[in-house]
Design a binder for these strands. Structure first.
Lengths: 338, 338
DNA sequence: CTTCAAAATTGGAACGATCCAATTACCGGT
DNA sequence: ACCGGTAATTGGATCGTTCCAATTTTGAAG
């Protein structure tokens, strides 16, 4: 039980070949005779050999391991991204370690440090809000390729290319859609001031409203479902004229829907609603939630592809990429079929 | 840019001490003079040293790294478990790598293999359904402590202790609650035949119904939100007499709620509903969903504690642990305040 | 100023794989 | 049987740490 694991030496002895041959078999090159290879593989099975990656890594320093740091893994939007990316990388032979920073910059720095020590060959990070550039300094020092996704926190875009969605266009489209549906007063619900994404997601809304000569209304707050529930009360008490809303994300929108249901308003008629992200739930609640769809799975696959071409062909991705988004109108905004 | 990373040697040279001293500083023992230690740390900062864990691991083979394999990371129930466990382990200085097997036994085996190669010192696994004992054989061969959680797939309980929830009692309680509310015909919705958890979650339901002399009704299917939506139609078409339902999990229940809303039934009045797991959403939809609460966060913390005591004090956990569950009645079953 | 134990420091020898250059095996054609 | 050339195999040397035994430094007591 306590004895040490067999090594490449033991396997070699058991198979009657040299350790070099075993190593060659391990690497799968067609350099060893099929017959010998079979012999070695049998010996591996019999001795219960397990590959020691640390030893290999020490010698080669290249391992198929990439780190993924997510600021809020509880949010289904990010979960979808993480799982899809992991699958895509796995298909190419890379292992992906997922970590959740829980929006805590200090923890995030620690996680990234640990990943670097473990020798990840790249990092994909959706950064937490928070103080300094510590996390990215660390990555820069280690000289590891890193991609910022979904949120842009560090300005060294040449070093840490960013990819996210074209939120501004999305919210503009959503606003226009609501106006087309006859909405007179459109509120924006959720998001805290001073955050880049919030400003981005609001900018399209503000532009379109300004063009239409309508006054914007912002109910700011955290981007959670709980806040959405609570925002419903605020909305009806303080802004009774509002007849439509764009939410920072679907979680807030779903919360808002629950809040409306509780107070007896019908979403889609009394209040027209559009969310953001188009998470799976959006199509499965009733009324179905209109949302600005971000095709997060496609984005994740794209990210994997970009990362791979960086790692394997040395092609550094463009410093900024904005993936298109599309409004998916459903009955929470059209009111059809209610 | 391309030059190799500084090693412990370089740091030593820079600080004017020997590599052994640097190593000692790294390990934090109080064996080196405070003054020297400071000198070394300064040298580390100046040379941009990063610790090479692979090398250390090769020598000591003990690293604070544990693997977590989850069968469905998209399900918020599991996400909550994973993130909480990760935080708890991080607090004790362990890094946790999370992987999603996506209910694919072959992928799971591959993931576990990769974790073992990376030298994890323990594995926590919520296993995917599927064929053979391959995954666990691998773990057994490597002699790594492993905990089965939430789902019991392997019978070697001495080797792979299991911990899960006391579902049978939970569903019995839920059934009794619904009967108390005046329900006459209670259906069980979701879950595929032949799976241990499904049988467990149904057993309490069946026992209580049998005692009350009521016929059970089972609408089986996958445990997803989409199935819940679809099940609503089945339910009303084929079993119009049903006036209450227990769902395999909250996802199914939430889907069922959406399905009811679409067809104009009021959950809590026309149909009394209880879910399972008490995920965050349950309290935030409207009507609020009654659910058998599993305190998954507490369970995750508990799991972390059990794992740590195994790893650090050598105390192997009991082969089977069933954590208590509690029914949380809300208005989807009581109908209050609707 | 010695002496001596305790504290601090140091030089190898591992750990288990990969890589390279060097060696040996094999095979078809004289 | 011999040769040449390719294919297959094989010993070191090496990667960056930790561990151990051995050595040096320190400082308090005599």
């Amino acid at each position: 039980m306590k004895q040490r694991r067999p090594t490449i030496h033991d396997v070699a002895a058991h198979a009657g070949v040299s350790k070099s041959t075993v190593s060659l078999v391990l690497q799968g090159g067609s350099q060893v005779r099929a017959e010998t290879a079979k012999l070695v593989r049998k010996a591996m099975a019999e001795t219960g050999y397990v590959y020691n990656r640390a030893a290999a890594q020490l010698r080669t320093s290249a391992v198929g391991l990439v780190g993924l740091v997510i600021n809020d893994l509880r949010n289904p939007f990010f979960t979808e991204f993480a799982t899809t990316l992991q699958m895509a990388m796995a298909a190419k032979g890379y292992a992906t370690v997922i970590s959740n920073s829980a929006e805590d910059a200090a923890l995030q720095a620690k996680l990234v440090g640990s990943m670097i020590e473990h020798g990840v060959s790249a990092i994909v990070i959706s950064p937490a809000y928070g103080e300094g550039p510590e996390t990215f300094d660390q990555i820069a020092r280690a000289g590891i390729p890193a991609l910022q996704v979904l949120r842009r926190m560090d300005d060294r875009l040449d070093e840490f290319p960013f990819a996210g969605f074209d939120y501004a266009t999305g919210s503009a489209e959503a606003t226009r859609h609501l106006l087309d549906q006859g909405a007179k007063h459109i509120a924006f619900v959720g998001g805290l001031p001073g955050r880049a994404i919030v400003e981005e997601r609001m900018s399209g809304y503000q532009t379109v409203l300004a063009a239409a000569g309508v006054e914007p209304t912002w109910i700011s707050g955290p981007t959670t479902r709980a806040f959405g529930v609570e925002a419903a009360d605020t909305l009806f008490a303080d802004h009774p004229e509002v007849d439509a809303a764009i939410c920072f994300n679907d979680l807030v929108a779903l919360g808002l829907m629950a809040g409306c249901a509780r107070t007896g308003r019908t979403v889609g008629r009394d209040l027209r609603l559009v969310g953001f992200d188009d998470i799976e739930d959006a199509a499965q609640v009733w009324p179905q939630l209109s949302s600005v769809s971000c095709d997060i799975a496609g984005f994740a696959q794209d990210t994997a592809a970009r990362l791979l071409s960086w790692l394997e062909d040395g092609k550094k991705p463009a410093p900024v990429l904005r993936a298109p988004v599309a409004l998916v109108p459903r009955n929470s905004s059209t009111g059809e079929g209610l």
